[in-house]
Structures are given as C-alpha cells and as structure tokens.
Design a protein around this nucleic acid. Structure first.
Length: 106
DNA sequence: TCCCTGACTGGTT
DNA sequence: AAACCAGCCAGGG
C-alpha cells in the first residue's frame, strides 16, 4: 500500500471545489511535495474504484487536458462530468486554466 | 537493495 | 503551435 504521501495527495484533491480544476503540479505543491506531479498521477491511479469521495477528474495536466494513459476510455466521460459541474472546454478539448483553475486561499 | 516504470512538467527543437 | 527530450521521485517486483 501507499506509504503515506498518497493520503496527503488525496486530501488536497478532495479540497478542489466543484466546478474547478487543479494541475498535478499544483496538487503536489499543495500537498507539500513540490516536484511530485508524477506521484500525484500515480496516487490517483492507485485510487480504489469505489472511492467516490476523491474527485480525481478535477485534476488535469498543465495544458488543461485530461491525462488518461491507462484509462483513455474515461476521458470523454470525464469531460461530461466536468461540464456538468460548469467547467467549459475549448475547441481543442482543453480547459481554460486561466478561468477554471482552482486558486486556493490557503 | 537494485532496476524499471510512470494520470507530469518545462524547456528546446 | 506541436512534437520531442531529459529531469524528476517514489512505488512495486
């Protein structure tokens, strides 16, 4: 199992408000792990399917796109889910981070 | 304990 | 603007 940092990462992800998104690097930084963007993706990969408390769909890469890799089938689903929260996508299928990126006050 | 892999990122080409 | 390259760190075999 995860040695601990995963829980910290999940905690940050759960703080992302509905209708907002955060980048992997951002989540890592907020979790106190500045250069662990990849570990964030790793952590989310290890997330149990029945965990509906962690909105992993709100975590996107620095381009504002859904990073799929091993779950490409979930991308379109993800997009609809986010759109349902009020997040808009541009023609290239990317989220305008300037407007939708979560800006935590603390 | 060593080696390989990977939901990423930023800079270059 | 898109594709490529190399750095980055931790988990699992």
């Amino acid at each position: 199992m995860a040695s601990g940092n995963y829980g910290r990462i999940y905690a940050v992800v759960r703080r992302i408000p509905r209708g907002r998104v955060a980048t992997y690097g951002q989540v890592a930084a907020l979790a106190g792990l500045p250069r662990h963007a990849r570990q964030v993706g790793y952590a989310l990969h290890s997330l149990p399917d029945d965990d509906d408390a962690t909105p992993w769909q709100r975590v996107v890469n620095s381009k504002g796109e859904i990073s799929a890799r091993c779950h490409p089938y979930a991308v379109p689903q993800q997009r609809e889910l986010l759109e349902g929260e009020g997040v808009k996508f541009d023609k290239a299928g990317r989220i305008p981070l300037a407007r939708f990126q979560w800006n935590p006050k603390r």
